[in-house]
Write a protein that binds this DNA or RNA. Structure first.
Length: 638
DNA sequence: TTAGGGTTAG
């Protein structure tokens, strides 16, 4: 730092300012020549060797060569590369000392440095002092605010620059798009970009795809991608990532195949999205193949974290543990993923032990880590531990409890049958309870058979989410159980009037890398007759050892035998039987469902696992069920 | 001198 302060500037009128001065006289052999010093300086900057670059600049000054805009700019980039904030600030002071008037591009470089260091106040005050601002100055500020997610500022800078008559370019638009936080704004911006003909730029294109994907507008994202005349690997990654983020695994995986066919080599971000595609579809075997492919790379932290998540969400904790154990570097996401993964798969105690290890490793938990910890407590019925973490999270980790933490606690209390305490906690919340919270309450009421509170919770859900078919059905069943037929009719009427239909239940099972789908009431599977025959035989054998179909879970449209029939052919039962028929004795039967598993299928799976000595893993939209020896990892609460 | 993609709970 001292070395830099030794640098002196000449007067603004000095001709030396326009370019570094190199004396014409040859240097003596023991004194380095000015031109070799300048070469050295450039070399050190290129190597990001900040101390030697400063030394060379000081030596140059001793010989009377003063820094100019280009050398200053090189030095600033060197500070950036070394993340040397203080030295960067000293260069800034130096640039403005002795009345020197730096060119706009040098001030832009300083602006860029502050932007990258996330020092928005410094960037803003430098920007305010600028007498001349070009498109780069404006774009740098927009990019700084976009990156810091100060979206309104970023957007207002676009308006101001237009007002000052500065024309935005592709850099500007690709930066400002990231700050677009409402759809009408985005549409207008997209329109403008089209009018000025910048929509073929790959940066603008990938930014458009990203922001549409972020808004869940995949049709628009697809349109941007599909109009593609220009493209590169990042644009492909944007569209694949967009589909994966929005849980459209099939589209993501198909696009990946297309990308390969088109000759684009995949890189780490591509594979991360491909893994996410496998994750949302619970395709363990495909995920394993991707893993083998990844081993050819030197996978970075993000890719390893995605791998961990894939194995946890595909229900293979053995694989997840082995990836976790081998990771050279772990961040808060790696730990949080593993803690939540263990908890979700029914290994709560291990999850809490891992949390202790995490703290011992010096990694600071974030709010998501605590969600995982509370989730683990609720899964294992650890009410006291849950209260301890919830009440002390602020004090211990500096994290304020938010809606999600309340949700976990309400789940914990609900599971433990402490419904009154759960309601008390809802009343303690600073924000209004959302549909997720009320669904948690409803779920607890179903287990603990609290009809009045269930109706209250269901009504609250429907106020917040009138399209939630599942809640109408539960509510209607609750009234039917109480023989409140007028209420039943009212619920049905409301459902009909709002055009709400029960989403058909679907179960998928992966056999030999092919996914077989079983939709309730659909007979299109080529082996459906044989599967049904086998299912009937299996049910018959189960009934001999005491299985009684639990008809509580059927929408009250059916009666008696018909009711049993509708249960008999639930997709997950067909999928289980198909798994038994097609997979080897040692293989785990892995099923993914689009709806929550019903109580009868849950009981069926437990008994089949015991009778057939098989492990069955069923992942529903929220929870995981590992059936083994007549027990389920969820502890019969879901 | 300014711009792009990927990971975490329910």
């Amino acid at each position: 730092m001292k070395a830099i302060s030794k640098l002196k500037c000449s007067t603004p009128t000095s001709p030396l300012r326009s370019s570094p001065y190199v004396p014409a006289t040859p240097a003596s052999p023991d004194i380095p020549s000015p031109s070799s010093l300048l070469d050295e300086f450039t070399k050190f900057c290129y190597q990001s060797d900040l101390p030697r670059a400063i030394k060379a600049m000081n030596a140059m000054q001793t010989l009377g060569i003063h820094a100019d805009c280009i050398t200053y700019s090189q030095l600033i980039k060197c500070c950036l590369a070394r993340r040397a904030v203080q030295q960067g600030k000293l260069v800034h002071q130096h640039v403005f000392s002795n009345g020197y008037q730096p060119k706009t591009f040098l001030i832009n470089t300083l602006l860029g440095m502050y932007a990258k260091f996330n020092l928005l106040n410094d960037a803003q005050s430098l920007f305010d002092k600028m007498t001349e601002r070009n498109v780069v100055s404006w774009t740098t500020m927009i990019s700084a605010y976009s990156n810091a997610k100060v979206n309104d500022k970023a957007l207002s800078f676009l308006v101001l620059m237009l007002r000052e008559g500065v024309r935005p370019n592709m850099y500007t638009y690709s930066s400002v798009l990231r700050a677009c936080d409402d759809l009408p704004n985005l549409r207008q911006l997209h329109c403008t970009i089209g009018k000025v003909g910048l929509d073929s730029d790959v940066f603008v294109r990938s930014a458009l795809i990203d922001i549409y994907a972020k808004w869940g507008e995949m049709q628009n994202a697809w349109r941007v991608f599909n109009d593609m005349e220009t493209g590169d690997v990042v644009v492909w990654n944007s569209i694949i990532g967009g589909y994966a983020q929005n849980s459209h695994g099939v589209e993501a995986l198909n696009l990946f195949k297309r990308m390969k066919r088109a000759g684009f080599p995949s890189n780490q971000p591509t594979l991360t999205s491909v893994l996410r595609g496998c994750t949302v579809l619970a395709l363990l075997e495909l995920g394993r193949q991707v893993h083998v492919h990844i081993l050819k790379y030197d996978p970075d932290l993000i890719l390893c974290n995605a791998l961990l998540d894939m194995y946890c969400k595909c229900g293979s904790l053995e694989d997840a543990n082995s990836v976790f154990a081998r990771m050279a570097e772990r961040d808060v996401i790696s730990w949080s993923t593993m803690i939540a993964g263990l908890a979700q798969n029914g290994h709560s105690r291990e999850a809490l032990q891992l949390f202790e290890l995490m703290k011992a490793s010096g990694t600071k938990p974030n709010y998501i880590t605590i969600v995982g910890v509370l989730f683990a407590c609720s899964h294992a019925g650890l009410v006291e531990d849950g209260w301890y973490y919830f009440r002390s999270m602020k004090h211990l980790f500096g994290i304020d409890p938010v809606r999600e933490h309340y949700g976990c606690m309400i789940d914990l209390l609900g599971r433990a049958g402490k419904l009154e305490d759960a309601i008390k906690l809802i009343n303690e919340m600073k924000s209004e309870p959302d549909a997720v919270i009320w669904r948690t309450v409803l779920s607890a009421c179903r287990v603990h058979r609290n009809v009045d509170l269930a109706a209250h919770a269901a009504n609250n859900i429907l106020k917040l989410d009138p399209q939630d078919a599942g809640t109408y059905i539960i509510l209607s069943n609750i009234y039917a159980n109480k023989q409140r037929w007028e209420d039943v009719a009212e619920v049905r009427e409301a459902m009909k009037n709002r055009g709400i239909r029960k989403e058909p239940g679907c179960s998928w099972v992966e056999v030999n890398k092919h996914v077989h789908a079983f939709i309730q009431g659909d007979c299109s599977h080529p082996q459906i007759d044989e599967i049904r025959r086998q299912l009937n035989r299996l049910i018959h054998r189960l009934m001999q050892v005491g299985y009684i179909p639990d008809t509580n879970f059927v929408l009250q449209d059916f009666e008696g035998e018909q009711m049993e029939d509708s249960l008999r052919f639930h997709g997950e039962k067909l999928a289980i039987v198909f798994g038994l028929m097609s997979l080897s004795k040692e293989s785990t039967i892995r099923i993914r469902k689009n709806l929550r598993i019903c109580g009868d299928c849950h009981l069926f799976a437990k008994l089949v696992a015991k009778m057939e000595h098989r492990v069955i893993v069923i992942r529903d939209p929220i929870r995981y069920h590992h059936f083994r020896d007549g027990f389920c990892s969820c502890g019969d609460y879901w």
